[in-house]
């Protein structure tokens, strides 16, 4: 798991499309680092209460803060601003139609803390920024595997190198399913418990097939064969068939594995030549859907069985004491 701090420059570049962020002052401070995903509304600090003020967070100045600032005298305003432009403050975001005063620009340039503006309302900015920052700071992990969207279920294939993960992915794509990533899958946590998988930008939708080489799935099969990201819903662990191994026969008990601390259902699938893993993978995906909808074939069978045996016992007992 890693947590990468991002700079204000990266933030501005990444979210300009949604938020139309503009740097209006403090350009020299663009390489300041944002260390967390939480934002802060600095209203209280502006009015003078600075105890526990989280100065290292992105400060969001909305309508009420701006209105308060305009009511102050020049000196008071300078003092108020000094309370929120601190040494470790990464940046200050002004939302809506609020003006950036000259005093504010001056202090930003002096302290080299960027002021960003967005035309959007404070609540929208807060939502989009938090979303973006939580994604940046979400726990993530890169694993060796293949992720395919099969009938809408994210199937993550894992297993030793050259066991046939890429071939299964290719087969599934050929049958109309969609590839997310082959070989290297980046997993990231979307709170509270969703694991999202995607592929590294460089290797986007490439598959390596032994003996053939690298194939670009998007070019060969078209845009319908790919997908950018998908929630990992079921893990399929492929292994060589082993006579000694005890494989699941009924499926009454679900097995799980953990990625990023989240439990994900796992199926251990032994393979051998001639076994059609693709069709089995499709079946796993469909069966997973059924389980989500509340139908579990193994449980239904066992219920039927227990009921039959119980009825039979009752009738036998009745006949045993029927001495007429």
């Amino acid at each position: 798991m890693k947590k990468t701090p991002i700079t204000v420059r990266e933030l501005v570049k990444s979210v300009t499309v949604d938020l139309r962020l503009k740097v209006v002052a403090g350009k020299n401070g663009l390489s300041r680092v944002i260390n967390g995903s939480e934002l802060h509304r600095p209203g209280l600090a502006l009015t003078g209460f600075t105890k526990g003020f989280p100065e290292d967070r992105v400060q969001l100045v909305g309508d009420s803060e701006s209105l308060y600032l305009t009511q102050l005298s020049q000196l008071e305003r300078k003092e108020a601003l000094e309370r929120i432009f601190r040494d470790t403050t990464p940046c200050v975001v002004i939302t809506g139609r609020n003006r950036v005063s000259i005093a504010m620009k001056r202090i930003a340039n002096e302290k080299q803390i960027p002021i960003l503006t967005s035309g959007k309302a404070a609540s929208d900015v807060a939502f989009l920024l938090t979303n973006f920052l939580s994604a940046c700071f979400a726990p993530s992990e890169s694993i060796h595997g293949t992720l395919v969207d099969c009938y809408g279920t994210g199937l993550l294939f894992i297993g030793r190198a050259s066991i046939g993960k890429s071939e299964i992915a290719l087969d599934l794509v050929e049958r109309g399913h969609r590839l997310i990533a082959d070989d290297i899958v980046n997993l990231s946590l979307k709170p509270p418990d969703i694991v999202i998988g995607s592929g590294p930008e460089m290797l986007k939708h490439l598959i390596e097939i032994r003996g053939v080489g690298v194939i670009n799935v998007r070019e060969v099969f078209g845009v319908r064969a790919i997908r950018l990201q998908k929630r990992v819903e079921t893990v399929v662990e492929l292994s060589d068939w082993d006579d000694k191994e005890d494989y699941e026969r009924i499926g009454l008990q679900d097995q799980y594995t953990k990625f990023l601390g989240i439990q994900i259902p796992m199926i251990r699938l032994p393979i051998y030549p001639g076994k059609n893993i693709t069709v089995i993978a499709e079946t796993i995906a469909l069966n997973q859907h059924l389980k989500v909808y509340g139908f579990n074939a193994a449980k239904e069978l066992n219920k039927r069985l227990l009921k039959n045996m119980e009825t039979k016992n009752r009738i036998d007992n009745y006949l045993r004491w029927d001495n007429e």
Partner: peptide
């Protein structure tokens, strides 16, 4: 409970 799913899978195993 008789030979239901769980015991049966132990036996088959």
């Amino acid at each position: 409970l008789g030979l239901h799913a769980r015991p049966a899978s132990k036996l088959v195993k």
